[in-house]
């Protein structure tokens, strides 16, 4: 292949296709930073899947218990963090107890615990009730083998969580099954719903073993997993689905329509307007590259 002559000036087409990487990265940093300083209102129509998930959560009776699978860490905080925040706020405000378990990452249980404590304090600061560990929520820890754990939860949740202990308000450890959250749980359907917040394939593991057993399933996933998980929403294996940053903003929008006067918006509202600029940059970059290719081809022809 002939090497290009460095003395020959680049054609317009070649210039358009060879912008330095550094310039592209700098423009990306500007596009994802500058809009954060401005309050840009963006209209939003939530998707049907997000509406179904919100309605499923909103119709849970107060005092009931749900299972929350928290399979996310700060690496995907931009999306799953916002989803988790929205979920916990809804559960707190509806007075629904929840048990949090993890099957994906050893770091995830501590991330979830820290986030719940932070959200609870924030709710209390704004006049809400918050949640108390042991009485309103328990942390069930990490289960490395997602397949075996999901099977056992389906067969007998008391055996799945029987060995787990959590901290009581008096500082001592007690069996999680004796907490007010889980004391009435004997079978899978004693949980009113299972909501999984995940950025990994634990979504399919959960659907394989827990769908169709009389327990409503909801999922909150990253954008990458949105299309593949939507397939299960389409076949009604999931009662609702929230995917990606758009999903976060959908949930916050729906919360704002229901929980008036409370803190509803978080990462969705903060990041969504900026996302527009980043996506627009991507579109422009692809167009510029293709225009450059077409000009080059014309020039050679």
């Amino acid at each position: 292949m002939a090497t290009p002559d460095p003395t020959t000036p680049k054609s317009l087409g070649e210039k358009l296709q060879s912008l330095p990487r550094g310039i592209l990265y700098l423009i990306l940093v500007i596009c994802t930073s500058v809009p954060l300083f401005f309050n840009i209102p963006v209209p939003n129509e939530p998707t049907q899947a997000a509406k179904d998930l919100f309605n499923a959560l909103n119709s849970l009776p107060a005092g009931s218990t749900v299972l929350v699978g928290s399979d996310w860490t700060v690496s995907t905080r931009g999306e799953t963090g916002g989803e988790f925040d929205a979920l916990i706020r809804i559960l707190m405000r509806k007075g629904i107890k929840f048990a949090v378990y993890t099957t994906a990452d050893p770091q995830a249980p501590e991330v979830a615990r820290d986030e719940i404590v932070m959200l609870s304090e924030d709710e209390k600061k704004h006049g809400g009730k918050g949640v108390e560990r042991w009485n309103d929520w328990v942390s069930l820890g990490f289960f490395p083998n997602a397949e075996a754990t999901a099977n056992l939860i389906a067969a007998d949740p008391t055996k799945a969580f029987g060995s787990k202990k959590d901290v009581k308000p008096d500082g001592t450890l007690g069996s999680a099954l004796s907490s007010p959250v889980l004391k009435d749980i004997k079978t899978l359907t004693d949980f009113k719903m299972l909501i999984l917040v995940t950025g990994t394939q634990t979504s399919t593991v959960t659907i394989e073993r827990l769908s169709g057993k009389g327990l409503p399933l909801g999922m909150m996933v990253t954008g990458v997993m949105g299309p593949e998980t939507a397939v299960y929403y389409d076949s009604r294996q999931l009662n609702g689905l929230c995917a990606g940053l758009k999903g976060v903003y959908d949930m916050e929008t729906l919360m704002d329509g229901t929980f008036k006067g409370q803190v509803n918006f978080g990462r969705g509202k903060l990041y969504y307007p900026t996302l527009h600029f980043a996506l627009a940059l991507l579109i422009v970059a692809v167009i510029v590259g293709n225009v450059g290719m077409m000009i080059s081809r014309k020039g050679k022809a």
Partner: peptide, 9 residues
């Protein structure tokens, strides 16, 4: 972004 700019033709 870099890959989309350079390779998406």
């Amino acid at each position: 972004l870099s890959a989309a700019y350079r390779a998406f033709r």
